[in-house]
């Protein structure tokens, strides 16, 4: 795509809008955004948060102008302060196209800023390209089931980039002597941030850093060959495997629904484990599905899993037709028992 943005009719004035992490650094998503911007040509950089100007120095060095808001009130993720900072940075920059990483912090604040600026916004962007003389943002619709492109004429246009969609380049320390312009913004927030906590499910929550995503389907709670259900065995097989393999645990919606409605089924599963549908679409390198029938919405949650295997009793289930790399037609109760023994 390169310089075409600058040559086209639009002549977009691009701003990369970042925030610092709790430790004052720029996160991976921010660096992904910077490398995307660098591929587009010239841009301005704006950073909000604690140590914003220090972070600006660590950023990749092709920004033409750098704006910062760095007062203490902007150190914590909070909609009122973050949206005010974003609004001021965008307004000051005069940008027509704003690229920002899709962190939880910006996802909360940037739509608010867009509304106040009279601008427009698109989120979860996984691509950005020039078609004819217009820019098009690529994103998913209907929970990752339909992919589409969006074109707009409003301005400023804030495009929130989906983490993981672009490659982050390692930051090269800034060589140029561009002065960082610090902006002052008075705020009086009504919200205090008290910190973060781990969810009750602890290590079993979907963890993006694990190499393997293990998904337990509703089949674990079904009556087995003997006509009985075996909840305790199912829970033991699943939890043992998660513990021993250090994998991330996901689940299908039907199983999560069963587990959260007061039934003694698999109480350690919560909606935070849900993959697909209203759940997450994790991006693990490998995924192992057990006792999941391959219905379409469930498979949606696997779209970004690179290597997929499934253990399932039905050789004709949806997994068998182009969704998994390998489908083992076998009883997951037996396979996982053996696998857990091997992991000792």
């Amino acid at each position: 795509m390169d310089q075409r943005l600058m040559q086209g009719k639009h002549m977009e004035k691009i701003l990369v809008l970042l925030h610092t992490e709790a430790d004052g650094s720029l996160g991976r998503a921010a660096r992904e955004c910077l490398s995307l911007a660098a591929s587009l040509g010239k841009y301005d950089l704006a950073i909000s948060g604690a140590d914003a100007s220090a972070a600006a120095n660590s950023a990749e060095g092709s920004a033409e102008r750098i704006l910062c808001i760095a007062a203490d009130e902007f150190a914590v993720p909070r909609s009122s302060t973050d949206s005010a900072a974003a609004e001021m940075l965008i307004r000051t920059s005069g940008a027509t196209l704003v690229l920002a990483p899709g962190t939880s912090r910006w996802s909360r604040a940037l739509p608010m800023a867009a509304a106040r600026l009279g601008g427009v916004i698109d989120t979860h962007a996984v691509g950005l390209e020039v078609v004819g003389d217009s820019i098009q943002v690529k994103r998913w619709f209907y929970r990752q089931r339909i992919e589409g492109t969006v074109a707009r004429s409003g301005s400023p246009w804030i495009v929130v980039i989906e983490p993981g969609a672009f490659t982050a380049t390692e930051a090269t320390p800034r060589q140029a002597t561009i002065e960082t312009q610090s902006l002052e913004l008075a705020v009086s927030p009504r919200t205090t941030v008290e910190g973060t906590i781990s969810t009750a499910a602890g290590e079993q929550t979907i963890r993006p850093d694990a190499a393997l995503l293990f998904v337990a389907g509703a089949g674990w709670t079904k009556k087995q060959k003997d006509g009985q259900v075996h909840f305790a065995d199912a829970a033991d097989r699943i939890q043992t495997f998660v513990h021993k393999s250090k994998c991330s645990l996901g689940s299908s919606k039907s199983l999560v629904d069963l587990s959260s409605e007061g039934e003694a089924v698999l109480p350690f599963l919560t909606h935070l484990h849900q993959v697909g549908q209203t759940g997450s679409t994790p991006r693990h390198r490998k995924g192992l599905a057990t006792c999941c029938h391959g219905e379409e919405p469930h498979v949606v949650g696997w779209r970004f899993i690179n290597e997929r295997r499934a253990v399932n009793l039905d050789p004709n289930c949806g997994w068998a037709r182009g969704k998994a790399d390998v489908l083992y037609v076998a009883d997951a109760f037996e396979v996982m028992k053996e696998l857990n023994a091997l992991l000792d």
Binding site: D257, L258, E261, E263, H293, D314, N316, C317, G318
Partner: peptide
């Protein structure tokens, strides 16, 4: 398969509780 007909065609669901 019959099971896929339930899912792909009938979209069969049951209330969990």
């Amino acid at each position: 398969s019959h099971q896929d007909a339930l899912l792909m065609g009938g979209k069969v669901q049951a209330a969990p509780d």
